[in-house]
Simulated scan of single mutants.
Amino acid sequence: MTLRYMIIGAGGTGAPLGAFLAKNGADVTLIARGAHLAAMQEKGLRFEQSDGEIWTVPVKAFDMDGFLAAKAQGAPSPDVIFVCVKGYSLDDTIPFIRSAAGEKTVVIPILNIYGTGRTIAGAASRSARDRRLHLHLVQSRRSRRDPSVTARSSA
């Protein structure tokens, strides 16, 4: 079984995660907006490593409404959702997660803000009456930058 990954927020955290998954053959969909979304749809995702290597990988990219439209037409739900939005966007992202996720989707928040896991888990438990949403929460108290990889995505 091939896992289907979704990354919500294709910025400084989500773009490198999506780029490496796609480069290694994973079924990955990025959720973005604006000019960055248009650039990924047209040109793929460009990645610059700290060693100077630059590469571009084609990716599936949608805005939230576009993905939900595709799902309504039969596109499958992701098996794993990485939530990589900024903390202030989390409240607007939760309804999309509820709609995009399948019954057994695993949601992994990767945000540098305290309390993110509790916020998502609380929203999921409130929606549990509608359907089951399994959450595996990964949080870190401290964020350390790995100097060996500097990722930048470009529009």
Rank of each mutant, 00 (worst) to 15 (best):
F47Y: 15
Y5K: 01
D92C: 03
A19E: 08
A72R: 02
N112R: 04
L111S: 03
A22S: 13
P16G: 11
I108H: 06
L21V: 12
M64Q: 05
G102H: 03
V59P: 00
G9T: 15
G87C: 04
F20N: 10
G66T: 04
M40E: 05
Y88C: 03
L111A: 07
A123G: 13
L45E: 07
L45A: 09
H136P: 06
S77V: 00
P16V: 12
A39T: 10
G34M: 11
G87K: 01
D27E: 14
P78D: 07
A39P: 12
F47I: 08
R131Q: 13
V57M: 08
A32Q: 08
I81G: 00
S125Y: 10
I97G: 01
A100R: 01
R46T: 14
D51M: 11
H136I: 06
R152A: 15
S143H: 10
I94A: 01
R144I: 12
P16I: 08
S154P: 11
V80E: 00
A32F: 13
L30R: 00
W55L: 04
A128K: 06
P76L: 00
F96V: 04
L90D: 04
N24Y: 14
T56I: 05
T13P: 14
I81H: 00
K43M: 15
P76K: 00
G117I: 02
I94T: 02
V106S: 04
G52C: 11
A151N: 10
A100H: 03
G52F: 10
A38F: 15
S77F: 01
P78I: 02
R144Y: 15
R129Q: 09
I8E: 02
G115Q: 07
A128Y: 04
L137H: 05
K86R: 08
T29E: 00
S148T: 15
I31Q: 06
N24I: 09
H134E: 15
F96W: 05
A19K: 09
A19N: 11
L133E: 04
A22M: 15
G14I: 02
I31K: 03
A19D: 10
R141Q: 09
P16H: 06
Y88D: 04
V138C: 13
L21E: 12
R141F: 14
S125C: 05
P76R: 02
I54Y: 12
T93G: 03
Q49H: 14
E53M: 11
Q49W: 13
M1F: 07
